[in-house]
Design a protein around this nucleic acid. Structure first.
Lengths: 240, 240
DNA sequence: GGAAATTTGTGCGTATGTATC
DNA sequence: AGATACATACGCACAAATTTC
């Protein structure tokens, strides 16, 4: 029954050597193409048994292929229910970044530098492009942050959301995804900073307000400047 | 023989609901911890059979766990040989970014904007921090690019390498990883741009030379300025 | 250079959890 | 609420490929 297995195998030229691509790799790539082409979110996939029949392979192969796609953030699997397509968001980026950063021991300083480069850009673009609705949202998040300024958990959550909303208002979706990822990564770091120097609480609020003012005034230069100083502050607080 | 399967299952509280964590997820997390703690690269893992025996589960579960780690860029598997630990580099970041970008249809414009923010920062830092050895490398890559300026494949390759070397000279490893990833993503885009407007070839070389001069002179402001104009150029060439 | 040992790849059956009627 | 159907989770056996002697 397995003498046609050779037919399922393909050989690809890769880096000056012939290399075998396994079945589950072929099928996960094939499924990824279909999922991307479909584009829609939360589409129920055929059952593993069904897919196995369609591709002419065992369910094991299908399972391993689906596992890869799950890890790539493209599908979710549920026992007794089935598998569904998922739109990969910034979560998979931040998970990947976190792993690479952990493994290669990148410093908080490096992360903050990158964050600064991206967020200064985001603030400037937000000042130019933010709609009144987006500005409203930024303000309301800021109000929530100030209201919860003594509850460190909530304070940090709204702080990150504030920066995320500004990135969103920049209109650049990649910028937004990256900022979200980095904020996710340095949440812990922000929490520690606030616990160590409570004065940073009021200072952060001041910069946030100035930022909102310059975005409202569509003042790109000041938005960039305040964002730079705001993030520089957090770096210096750690040093001291 | 399987009545102790319940013992292997654990239940974790997650997002206000009890959720089952599957065996392969537990084991992949466990193995990831071990790999990260070990830290060293290219360590040979025990065989799947061995791991199965150690964890008291079937080889299928071990395989699925290893598949996850492989997809995370932490291990590589070889038939007839074994599995080895791998240090996740910028490749996994660019793959992840590519997927998210494709699926969410981010524009070339957005990507270039982010690239600009990061690379301007990198150029400025490189001007401040580049060692003479790093400057030498940047120059030699630039010479290779100019020498191969009529071979589009090589020209693009060395172009990307040039930008990568500058990011490396910035001393910020995260910045370097992200720039590498983005260069990987827009290689195709650079190639198309060069084919459409050959004049961009000489223009690019000019900016590269100015960049090298300002880095040599440790002139942060001009390095930033030239990088900004260099990348702006490539955007405008597409528009026209 | 070939045969044996080793290791990963694939196929299939059973157990378990979930949704539905 | 309970029983049944169904889909995924897990375990075992064999095939294929690579290394080693």
């Amino acid at each position: 029954m397995e003498e046609n297995k050779q037919n399922n195998s393909i050989w690809v030229i890769k880096k000056n050597s012939i290399q075998h691509q396994t079945l589950y790799e072929q099928i996960s790539d094939s499924l990824e193409q279909l999922i991307i082409q479909n584009g829609n979110d939360l589409v129920k996939l055929p059952t593993e048994y069904e897919l196995a029949k369609q591709y002419g392979v065992s369910r094991t192969v299908i399972r391993e292929a689906l596992k890869l796609l799950k890890e790539r953030g493209l599908v979710s699997m549920h026992v007794g229910d089935g598998s569904y397509t998922v739109r990969p968001g910034s979560a998979v980026i931040s998970q990947t970044l976190e792993r690479v950063i952990r493994f290669n021991r990148f410093s908080d300083n490096d992360i903050t530098e990158v964050r600064k480069a991206l967020e200064i850009n985001a603030a400037g673009k937000a000042a130019l492009l933010a709609t009144s609705k987006e500005i409203e949202e930024i303000e309301s998040v800021e109000n929530l942050m100030e209201y919860n300024k003594n509850d460190i958990e909530k304070r940090v959550e709204y702080d990150c959301l504030f920066h995320g909303k500004i990135a969103y208002a920049s209109g650049n979706k990649l910028l937004c995804a990256l900022v979200d990822s980095l904020m996710d990564l340095i949440k812990e770091y922000i929490r520690i900073r606030l616990e160590q120097s409570p004065a940073g609480n009021e200072l952060g609020i001041m910069w946030h307000r100035k930022l909102i003012q310059s975005i409202k005034a569509h003042d790109e230069n000041h938005a960039c400047l305040y964002m730079r100083q705001h993030i520089d502050d957090s770096l210096h607080q750690l040093d001291s």
